[in-house]
Design a protein around this nucleic acid. Sequence first.
DNA 1: TTGTATGCGTTATCAT
DNA 2: ATGATAACGCATACAA
Lengths: 319, 319
Amino acid sequence: MTNIKDLAKMAGVSVTTVSRVLNHHPYVSEEKKNAVLEAVRATNYNKNLNAVHLSTGKTQLMGVAIPFSDHPYFALLLKGIASQALQYNYKLVLIQTDYSESREMEALQMLKQKQIDSLIICSRTSDLSTIQGHLHYGSIVLCESAEGMKISKTFVNHYKIFFEALEYLYQKGHRKIGYCIGRRSGTNSENRSLAYKDFHKKYRLPYHPEYIIDNCLYFEDGEKVVNEIKEMDSPPSALLVTSDQVAAGIVIRCEQMEISIPDEMAIIGFDNEPIAKMMNITTIEIPLVEMGRNLFLQAMTDNISTMELPVNLIERGTV
Amino acid sequence: MTNIKDLAKMAGVSVTTVSRVLNHHPYVSEEKKNAVLEAVRATNYNKNLNAVHLSTGKTQLMGVAIPFSDHPYFALLLKGIASQALQYNYKLVLIQTDYSESREMEALQMLKQKQIDSLIICSRTSDLSTIQGHLHYGSIVLCESAEGMKISKTFVNHYKIFFEALEYLYQKGHRKIGYCIGRRSGTNSENRSLAYKDFHKKYRLPYHPEYIIDNCLYFEDGEKVVNEIKEMDSPPSALLVTSDQVAAGIVIRCEQMEISIPDEMAIIGFDNEPIAKMMNITTIEIPLVEMGRNLFLQAMTDNISTMELPVNLIERGTV
DNA sequence: TTGTATGCGTTATCAT
DNA sequence: ATGATAACGCATACAA
């Protein structure tokens, strides 16, 4: 494998000059420049980026810690991140966490070990203080409100969204409202749970723990949800579903079971994925791709910033 | 940032000994070992992986060139790859190609520049010969048959699958069969196109170019497909749909338009995604996760191997 | 405009 | 069992 020293020898110049040519620096004569380029061509030379990284202390690599990528929520987030990465000539290192704290620690470890310049944590599991302790190794960006913490973040206000959606259903006459969620832990889930409780307090409604159905991630989980509700003595009349995928699955399953929507069961989905439009599902639009883009930009700088993105209720046929 | 030299000084040993301790090499006394470990603890030391990579010539990084990750086909492939990466302590670098050749060349470039040890190309755009020319920079694995080429690959026989599916529909009495596909170019698409033509030749059926509908990737594309077919004077009576997502979208749209399935329109999907099971869609099961796992394993070795995976027609209610 | 010399932080070779 | 020293390949401060 040829290196700049070889090139220098071949072109009859110093390694510095070679480096200058390779990095498009000024102050190098046409003549020598051509000699170097000729040597590059002749040897089919390639930089060893590991050497560059060691020397510069940077890798042009950004870590993305994500529970899994085969769900539209994270896939769309990733899409936004990737679009910016492309533009800024950054590569992404995918760190699948499966919501495991140790995997997330590995991501932080990579930052410490200078394998990545910065890190986006799409769904945090470890302590905020732990993360903050790693901040001087490189910039870290979160996807949640992380109140009071001096960490960059882009997020939507899940508490507010959930509360407003519940009130919307209340205004439509619903008094028995349930919700479907991916998992119970995690900041976003806890905020939603809180909103759900506060809503019931505010309107003095009875709180049914069985109205909360977790492990709802994919289209096919809609089947499980409807089956579960069918078994209830006093089923909810409306459902907040934190993924349009699941909402669509519920709608389909309801059709199969001849449960009329929205009369017998009202549905509000989340994210405004294309499937929601096609199936005419009322949903709350969350700008996931834009969030991803912003997460990337925040990870690029060392400045700490906070960005809350607005959401939008899209009224369609399932409420 | 402390380095092994500092540690050596602190522990009163040589850098070699420090390195030995850090890499769990034998031949180091308990005493010195503890001294080193104590220094590590005291300084909160972390390896600089870039230095390791430069010195060893390896990065423990595998590149995954993928058109986009927000589609179940690639997401499932990625899932399989990621599961093995986790097990073998490899990290994945995501290279979104958007089917662009230049982006794919960038991936090859990364291999040349030693940023990644190996590369999985999930959907090739560049020349096979170009790829082969990069083989000595690191192992490269493809996801297509790549006949006669000395490159590792894991694939399913799309020609055979398509042909058999068409014959299956033929046996069921269908004479006007169309198909939906993501894009027209690409090895897999060309193989399918060839099978489609050969099928028509074999059974002396008229060839309708308008029965081939491209740009079918997502659930919502099903709407477009049905609308297009509705416009035809002589629409097909059966459809081969190269993604269960799209197949599901078509089924839903047909319900909306009151087109009866399978009587007026028969559907065969691909991949056997969970959505196909839930919606009782006849489909061809492709073991995507297993493919991903195998792709990873092939990329780990320098040996060239070929693996063709079997597929499976799952008869359900849409034919 | 060009070159020399040094640093980046490891690993590996070869003595001892 | 331990250590000195040479790679690894590039960037860059400084000198000229």
